[in-house]
Design a protein around this nucleic acid. Structure first.
Lengths: 129, 129
DNA sequence: AATATATCCTATAGGTTATGTAGGATATAG
DNA sequence: CTATATCCTACATAACCTATAGGATATATT
């Protein structure tokens, strides 16, 4: 998705290119992009001149959303997960819960505040100099 | 280990008790304690009146050490792991690397600074009131 | 010395996840 | 019509998590 965000002005980008530029097996990448498409983060066009592109502006896609979709909960343990909560022995220690909840909150804030546009901008800035 | 830290003044504690009090299968717990013992975090005494106890003062055991032993690297991705570094496509984005490195550093600091003694103390304090 | 209590050690197993491989069906630009 | 590209599904493999199981060994107490 970062690669798509970097080339947001151009025509659709084929998996071929993304795979080659990023060292990812093409067929594996296809599956990931399909998942992203079904979740509404990318769109595609078939056939020659086809490929993938972002479905929304890069500044409306946070890392948190994408990571939750692909990797599941941000929380380090199920006991402090907001949306995927599961009961575990960790809950028997309020102090431990606080530590893990702090961690979850830090992760959530950080990853929710950072968008693909932020990353692209940072990289553009430092390569200009 | 937290349970052991809470009862640090008493005699060795058998797996039986820890298992029952924390809702963990006894045989499963045994394996975990063996791992912790081999790593030098707990000691044991066999036979009647036997059981497990901490091998060092609770304020010398950080969460980071224990989690690294049991769960592996703290880093959210291998590319920013200090001691378990592996090369991945993430490395192609300096900005992403920064985000993940920030996260790793936060985790490392937080978990290295928090010891078992801290957790016990916090819990004692709030139960006194 | 016998007994009961506990740890110690190893093998095994079922389910899930991560990381792919593979093959073909379908759409579309030129 | 053809080449290009996505779309869809099935399958494979290794590792990890969460155990379960059975017995060997040590030791405090009686």
């Amino acid at each position: 998705m970062l690669y798509l965000a970097r080339h947001v002005e151009s025509r659709p980008i084929p998996t071929q290119e993304i795979a080659a530029q990023n060292g990812i097996p093409r067929k594996f990448l296809e599956q990931i992009l399909l998942t992203l498409k079904r979740a509404g983060y990318v769109q595609s066009r078939r056939g020659p001149e086809g490929g993938y592109f972002l479905a929304k502006p890069a500044n409306e896609i946070s890392l948190a959303e994408v990571i939750r979709l692909m990797d599941g909960p941000l929380a380090p343990v199920g006991a402090v997960s907001e949306f995927f909560h599961v009961s575990t022995p960790v809950e028997r220690s309020p102090a431990l819960m606080t530590v893990f909840r702090d961690i979850r909150n830090y992760l959530a804030e950080k990853l929710e505040q950072t968008t693909l546009a932020d990353l692209v901008e940072i990289e553009n800035r430092s390569s200009e100099k």
